[in-house]
Amino acid sequence: MARSQPQNAPDDSDALEHAIAGVAAAMADPSRVKMLSALMDGRAWTATELSAVTDVAPSTASAHLNRLMNSGLIVCVAQGRHRYYRLAGSDIAALIENMMGVSWRRIDVPKSSTPASLRIARTCYDHLAGEIAVQIYSAMAKQGWITPEGSTVTLYGQQQFAALRIDLSQPGRRKACCGCLDWSERRFHLGGYAGAALLTAFNAQGWLTRQPGYREVAFSEAGIRHLRQVFAITVAD
């Protein structure tokens, strides 16, 4: 005989809906959105730094950070006596980037409102975004580095990455390659493990420089020269 369900047993049929609503509620505050946007540079920030970014009192910043942690959007990393906060992962960064794109469509004149430095080149968590990143993705697709839908690095692409001293053999559980919709350009840039490895290599080889605490990146003369040689991309002065 089938066992009857206890009258007071929790009904989890709406668990997903409640979870989505919880995440949305955690993001439904301009100060918390500013914190998440700051953490999109891929680095870990202190509570004091995030308090300054959002222009709120330290106690208020602490409450916001707890809310974001409880929702699984950020994590806290202890380093000695210091505590740092960062995004919980690349999937959270992708969620924020997509929300930026959706929200940007509600602004009448995005071209004139977007800071030029962000449009040209910036980080999207741990990979490149902006005009140059979109051009790199387009060049990779045209040259056959990646499949047309951007989900796989081709054998030729693996050879080209290797020529740039980039090893794609151990992506772990992460997607080896994917197209990430750029919120300012409305086109794809390279995401996934390949996108992260590309940014790391560009930085290590001195092709670009990053400023701590900022998403903007600046390409060096060597980087501009290699962009032209490898991807046929011309960067304006």
Rank of each mutant, 00 (worst) to 15 (best):
A196H: 04
T209M: 13
Q205E: 09
L199N: 00
L190K: 04
G206E: 03
W183F: 14
L199G: 00
N203S: 13
R210T: 14
G192K: 02
Q205C: 09
A196E: 13
G213M: 10
G192L: 00
D182L: 07
E185F: 07
N203W: 10
G206V: 00
L198V: 01
C180V: 15
R210D: 03
P212V: 03
L199V: 07
G213I: 03
E185R: 12
L181N: 09
R187N: 15
R210M: 14
G206P: 02
S184W: 09
E185I: 08
D182T: 02
A196R: 11
A194G: 06
A204P: 00
L181Q: 11
E185Q: 13
A197Q: 13
D182Q: 06
W183C: 11
D182K: 03
T200P: 01
G213R: 11
Y193L: 02
R187W: 03
S184I: 01
T209H: 14
A197F: 01
G195F: 04
T209G: 15
G191Y: 01
W183M: 10
Q211N: 08
R186C: 12
A194H: 05
W207D: 07
F188L: 14
L208S: 04
G195H: 01
N203H: 14
R186K: 14
A201D: 06
L181P: 10
G206W: 00
A197K: 09
A201M: 08
G192Y: 03
W207G: 09
Y193A: 04
E185T: 11
L190W: 04
N203C: 09
W207Y: 11
A201G: 06
T209R: 15
G206T: 00
A204N: 10
A197G: 06
H189M: 04
N203A: 12
R187G: 13
G191A: 07
P212G: 07
L190Q: 08
A197Y: 03
W183P: 15
S184R: 11
A201S: 14
A194C: 08
L181E: 10
R187D: 14
A204W: 08
R187E: 15
R210S: 15
A194P: 06
P212T: 07
L198F: 10
L208W: 01
A194I: 02
F188H: 14
L181Y: 05
T209Y: 13
